Each structure stands twice: as C-alpha cells, then as structure tokens.
Computed example of a mutant assay.
Amino acid sequence: MGRYVEVEKDVKLYVEDIGAGRPVIFVHGWPVNHRMFEYQYNVLPKYGFRCIGIDLRGYGKSDAPWSGYDYDRMSDDIAVVADTLGLLHATLVGFSMGGALAIRYAARHYGRRLCGIVLAAAAAPVFTQRPDFPYGTPVEQINKSIAGLYTDRPKTVADFGMTFFAKPISDPFRTWFNGLGFDASSYGTIKGLESLRDEDLRGDLANVQLPTTILHGKLDAIAPYALAEQMNKGIQGSKLVPFEQSGHGLFYDEREKFNQELLNALGGK
C-alpha cells in the first residue's frame, strides 16, 4: 500500500507500507529509491515484519523540491514519516547514503521511535577522503561524477551502476536497477551527490545509542570496507558482519545471507 506523507509545506514523500507487525523502515541509497529493497520486501513480512519503504525527497515517486538535500533535513523527513505513521520500536535499515542518514537520524533525533539500526554498505562516517581521513573516495572522482550529471546524467548513473555488484547480474536486472536511478530528479541527484561528498558524520558516531548492526561487502568499490571498520570503532557496541563475496550491492550479491543477517538483527529468525 502506498501513501504520501507531507514532511514540510508543499513537500510530500512517497511511502510504501507492506505487511504487518513490528516496523522496519528502509532508506535507500543514491540515486535509486525504495524499490531497491524488493528482495527484502518479499521475505520479511513472512516473519511478522511491516516493511516501510521511503522514497527520499528528489527520488522515486517523492516530490523533488529545489532544496533540502542535506543530511539534517533528510533525516528530519524520516522523523516526520515515523511520527505520522505512529511507529514504535522500529528498526531503521539504511543502505549507502541511507545508512549515513540512519546515523544522522539516530544521533540528531536521539533514536526516537527506534529500537535499533542496520547500516548496509553505509556511506559513512565520511564518504570522501579528507586530510585527516584517508578512507573513502577521492573528492576529485566525485566532482567528475557531478560534472557528468550536468552533461549526461543517464550515462553517469549507468557507469555508477557498473561498479555496484561484485557478482554477475542479468542484463534485465541491470536495466531495471539503473532505471531506479533514472527515475530520480536531475537536481536531486546532483545535490544528493554533493551531500555525499561534503557531509561528515564522525561527530555523530558516539551519539548513536542504539543496537547497531553493520553489514558491509569486503569487495565494495564504492564505500570501501575500511568505512565499516571506522563505523564499528565509533559506534559503541556495534556488530560488524563482513560479506566476503559482496560489492556495494550486498543486498543482491549475497541475497540469502543479507536477508538472514537482517532477520538476525531484527530478532526475527
């Protein structure tokens, strides 16, 4: 069942609500939308979980305002959705940029309405390299991608998709997955990537006071495994689960393991 939630004046987010039971909020990565979690939505409701997939502003079926693509505003959007739906004891599952937003939400909103978070291939604590942070992607590489979005967005998104999975995928699957990125607004795509480049969550890690499971591919060419190790060090009591055969798209590279570890984190199997 789909619905729209107004998160600020004249800005509505699309929310897919599937199944019944304890809520699990899914936050997608850049530049796709909630539909990337199709292979989780097919499974979790069987175990008594209610899957709530949010399209972030600028992506999927949500409104695409000109502004508001910083992590504070986007985490506030998630909070409004959780409040509007009256969710309690929810687990927030964030993938890539969505993982960064899960960290910001947990720190900024003191874990309100949550009982835990799952960080899947999270683009955190910092996605790009800094003088005091040698991990992540060089800023110059991100700037090149941003320039590409201004000149040939479909090719830039498709090129990004080529580095996503460590295992072979079918041509129809690649077409479908790239299409999720093509559905995003052009300026939302640009501004989201600018936030990935510029945001810094190192100060948030110590303020995450929730049970935290980190799922990360050892072969991730987009958010290197070293980022997972940094999150694991910074979030007290967090559990790091390596995916030896996965790239960034661990939710599909090792689909069965991912679903099992997700259920383990949820206490559902």
Score class of each variant (00 low, 15 high):
Arg50Pro: 08
His28Gly: 12
Leu215Phe: 10
Gly203Val: 08
Gly249Glu: 02
Leu56Pro: 01
Gly136Cys: 06
Val81Pro: 11
Leu266Ala: 07
Lys12Arg: 15
Leu201Arg: 12
Glu194Asp: 13
Gln236Trp: 01
Ala158Glu: 14
Phe164Lys: 05
Asn143Asp: 15
Arg153Cys: 07
Tyr69Phe: 12
Phe133Met: 08
Asp198Ala: 13
Lys155Val: 11
Asn33Phe: 02
Ile117Asp: 08
Val27Phe: 00
Gly188Ser: 12
Ser96Ala: 15
Val32Ala: 03
Thr156His: 09
Val126Pro: 00
Asn264Asp: 15
Glu16Asn: 12
Lys239Met: 10
Glu140Val: 10
Asp77Glu: 04
Pro65Glu: 07
Tyr252Ala: 12
Phe160Arg: 13
Arg35Gln: 14
Trp176Asp: 06
Ser170Met: 07
Arg197Ile: 12
Gly68Trp: 05
Ala206Asp: 09
Ala90Trp: 02
Phe127Ile: 01
Asp72Leu: 09
Glu140Arg: 14
Thr156Gln: 13
Phe165Asp: 12
Thr128Asp: 03
Gly86Ile: 00
Arg112Gln: 12
Asp72Asn: 11
Val5Asp: 01
Gln260Pro: 05
Phe165Val: 12
Asp76Gly: 09
Thr175Met: 06
Ala124His: 09
Leu215Gly: 11
Leu262Ser: 03
Arg112Pro: 01
Trp30Ala: 14
Asp204Val: 03
Gly21His: 08
Ala79Pro: 11
Asn178Lys: 09
Val93Ser: 02
Asp17His: 00
Lys155Ala: 15
Phe258Val: 07
Met1Leu: 04
Leu149Asp: 07
Arg197Ser: 12
Asp220Gln: 05
Phe251Ile: 15
Leu101His: 05
Pro23Gln: 04
Gly2Arg: 01
Ala121Phe: 01
Ser185Thr: 13
Trp30Ile: 13
Gly58Gln: 05
Leu92Ile: 03
Ile190His: 10
His28Asn: 14
Phe26Gly: 03
Ile117Gln: 05
Pro65Leu: 04
Pro138Val: 05
Val139Gly: 09
Gly29Trp: 00
Gly192Ile: 10
Gly58Met: 03
Asp10Arg: 11
Tyr187Pro: 08
Val241Ala: 08
Arg57Tyr: 09
Glu261Pro: 06
Phe177Pro: 15
Glu140Ile: 07
Gly94Leu: 02
Pro211Ala: 10
Gln129Lys: 15
Gly237Glu: 03
Val80Trp: 00
Arg50Lys: 14
Gly181Tyr: 01
Ala206Asn: 10
Ile25Asp: 02
Lys191Arg: 15
Gln245Val: 06
Arg3Pro: 00
Gly267Ala: 13
Ala265Glu: 06
Gly268Ser: 14
His28Ala: 11
Gly136Met: 08
Asp171Trp: 01
Phe165Thr: 15
Val24Ala: 07
Gly68Arg: 11
Ala223Gln: 06
Asp10Gly: 05
Thr156Leu: 05
Asp198Pro: 05
Leu240Phe: 00
Gly203Glu: 04
Met162Trp: 02
